[in-house]
Simulated assay, not measured.
Amino acid sequence: MPSINQARIAILATDGFEQSELVQPLEKLKAAGATVEVISIKSGEIKGWDKTDWGDSVPVDKLVSDVTVNDYDALVLPGGQINPDKLRADETAVKFVHDFYNTKKTLAAICHGPWLLVEAGVIKDRDVTSYKSIKTDIVNAGGRWHDEEVVTDQALITSRNPNDLPAFIAKIIEEVEEGRHEKREAA
């Protein structure tokens, strides 16, 4: 089992990410000792959305097109309405999520982040949660939706909204330390 302080974690996001859903995992996972990188479909900085208006910018460490799934022990997908909608329209981002899922390593999505799981075709027959407004999208893609703060299905972690961040981040750390989930079926 890898220790969290040896883990390499990617956060995949672009403009319009929900501020707290990127910043809190970034800060807490780094504080736990993990190496955390923000990867994106654009270089430079990406701008957050903070509840009702634009938030702060975050520097991008690497482009998703320049990394491989083997570079990381976990992948985190923050929500916000704009961010996952832009990412699910980008073939490279969707392929990265799909390929990462197939590594059987920890994959975590919060709020609207599961839209990427739907687009990547990895949600079918999985227990998940999300922001309530995309429940129908999850169900139509074959996922089993639950109204719980954190739902884990063989290292696939999902949460509903920013209020769930403490449980979401704690579960990421726990699942990273458990390692790969070899029983998880590929998509």
Score class of each variant (00 low, 15 high):
V94R: 06
N5F: 11
L63F: 04
A155F: 03
K132L: 13
A93I: 00
Y101Q: 09
D90V: 01
K86M: 09
I138A: 06
G16E: 03
C111L: 00
I169C: 05
L26V: 07
V139A: 03
L156Y: 05
R8L: 00
D15N: 15
E27P: 06
V58G: 06
K104Q: 14
K171E: 15
P84N: 12
V38L: 07
V69Y: 04
A31R: 06
P2L: 13
V139I: 14
V176M: 03
D90M: 02
S130E: 12
D73A: 05
F100W: 02
I173F: 04
N140D: 14
A120P: 04
L117F: 10
L117T: 11
D56A: 15
G44M: 07
L12H: 08
K95D: 12
K95M: 09
V69T: 15
D71L: 04
D71W: 09
Q24M: 14
A34E: 07
D127M: 12
P84H: 06
E18W: 03
K86I: 09
I123D: 05
D85V: 02
K95E: 13
D66P: 00
E178H: 15
H112K: 07
D137G: 14
I9N: 02
I134T: 10
T52H: 14
D99V: 11
T14Q: 13
F100K: 05
K124H: 06
Y131N: 10
A31Q: 11
F100L: 05
S43H: 13
D66E: 15
A93L: 06
R88L: 13
D66N: 09
A187K: 06
I39H: 12
D85N: 14
S3W: 03
S133F: 12
D127L: 12
A89H: 01
L75Q: 07
D147G: 11
V69D: 05
R8H: 08
V118K: 06
S65T: 14
G79A: 06
L26K: 07
W145T: 13
S43V: 08
D90L: 02
E149V: 04
D50M: 14
E91R: 09
L26I: 12
R184C: 07
I123S: 06
D153V: 10
D164L: 01
V69Q: 11
A32V: 03
V76C: 01
K183Y: 02
S57P: 12
A170P: 02
D71I: 08
R8A: 02
G79M: 00
V139R: 02
A89R: 08
T52R: 14
V67S: 09
E185T: 11
E148V: 04
I134Y: 11
K62Y: 04
P78Y: 05
N70D: 15
